[in-house]
């Protein structure tokens, strides 16, 4: 049977002022609304009734939030509605932040990248084998917290409201790269806005995923100059197409003006409820190889993974170190591995 979406109204405000007005009105009317940008993550969830909404608000008429600008201090200001394909193809991004352009080209499929946005990828819903299913499938296992049920099938002892209540895993490809780049998010609320560093944005839960407040809109992603940081991103996926990362590893090496490595940075996606990242100083004595070993051990130890994926959890965990070392080799630091 065709999976049809029904039961909600559709709004498509033209421009930021119209969006602000609409959100104010919806807030006053206390109507449950959902913001949709590219919708490539949202539509399957609506079709499969993993979430319900009274009003679907398309952001695609808000042209102010699309596009890429270079600020005078070298910061890239990327509208949250900028399509991933545009991020990947942008000469500005390719020149200033090649790792971001590269990772944008690794998300989903070409058609998805033509529609999905950078903001949407940072907000992509966490996934779980018990949630991302059809209604029929979810009636077989009792509905879990994330779909308004009262159990977690992954951690049976989980309690609603006590974080982490949900172990749905984080799957954004772009987040780890933007984390290492110290990206900031500009969040719009009413007439105001606030800036939140990406590293403080995510929360340790598959449902209460981030600090975005109801009615708040992700407006821009600000990426400061890389400052000598070179990043490699690779993902563990069965296929070189379509798949979400079973594990995604961004590895960065920061070099000073003389080209000497000063910092090793690692960020992970695909495991656990939120992206994780670490920085390790490479100055002051410790041999880089030891730092790399320490970083891998730390990462492997810190992540919580469950049997939620095509790949067994132990394998995904074991691949962290492998991917870190391979990333370093691609960055020309094979000697450390």
């Amino acid at each position: 049977m065709t999976t049809r979406m029904t039961g909600f109204d559709f709004e498509r405000p033209a421009g930021l002022p119209a969006l602000r007005g609409l959100l104010a009105r919806l807030g006053k009317e206390q109507r449950r609304f959902t913001l949709a940008a590219g919708g490539t993550d949202l539509m399957p969830q609506l079709k499969q009734q993993q979430l319900a909404t009274e009003v679907l608000v398309s952001l695609n008429g808000v042209g102010e939030l699309a596009g890429i600008e270079l600020a005078s201090d070298g910061t890239l200001r990327i509208g949250a509605l900028t399509r991933l394909a545009e991020v990947a193809e942008s000469p500005l991004v390719r020149e200033r932040q090649p790792a971001l352009a590269a990772v944008a080209a690794r998300v989903g499929s070409p058609q998805i990248r033509n529609r999905a946005t950078l903001g949407g990828n940072l907000l992509v819903n966490n996934r779980c084998v018990y949630v991302n299913q059809s209604p029929l499938n979810r009636t077989v296992h009792a509905p879990c917290f994330k779909v308004d049920g009262d159990v977690c099938h992954i951690v049976k002892s989980a309690v609603r409201g006590k974080l982490p209540q949900c172990q749905a895993r984080f799957v954004s490809d772009t987040a780890p790269v933007l984390l290492l780049l110290d990206a900031r998010l500009v969040l719009l609320r009413g007439r105001g806005e606030r800036r939140v560093p990406l590293r403080r944005f995510y929360r340790n839960d598959g449902m209460e995923r981030n600090v975005l407040k109801p009615g708040e809109v992700l407006g821009w992603i600000e990426v400061p100059p890389a400052g000598g940081l070179r990043i490699d991103y690779d993902k563990l996926a069965v296929r070189n197409a379509l798949d979400f990362p079973s594990l995604g590893v961004a590895v960065g090496v920061r070099e000073d003006e003389r080209g000497e490595p000063v910092e090793l940075a690692v960020a992970l996606t695909g495991l656990g409820t939120h992206p994780l990242h670490w920085r390790f100083a490479l100055v002051g004595g410790a041999a880089p190889a030891a730092v790399v070993a320490q970083a891998c051990a730390r990462a492997e130890k810190s992540v919580t993974t469950y049997q939620q994926d095509f790949f067994p959890r132990d394998y995904r965990k074991k691949m962290i170190g492998t991917f870190v070392r391979r990333g370093l080799r691609r960055l020309g630091r094979g000697a450390w591995t």
């Binding site: 559709f10 498509r12 539509m43 398309s58 058609q111 998805i112 033509n114 529609r115």
Partner: peptide, 24 residues
């Protein structure tokens, strides 16, 4: 949005018509 068979060009670029709202 997984098989690609519904691809159409929207303003010249291929997109998945099963994931687009007609009104959008």
């Amino acid at each position: 949005g997984e098989c690609g068979c519904c691809s159409v060009l929207v303003d010249g670029r291929p997109m998945l018509s099963c994931l687009l709202l007609a009104a959008d």
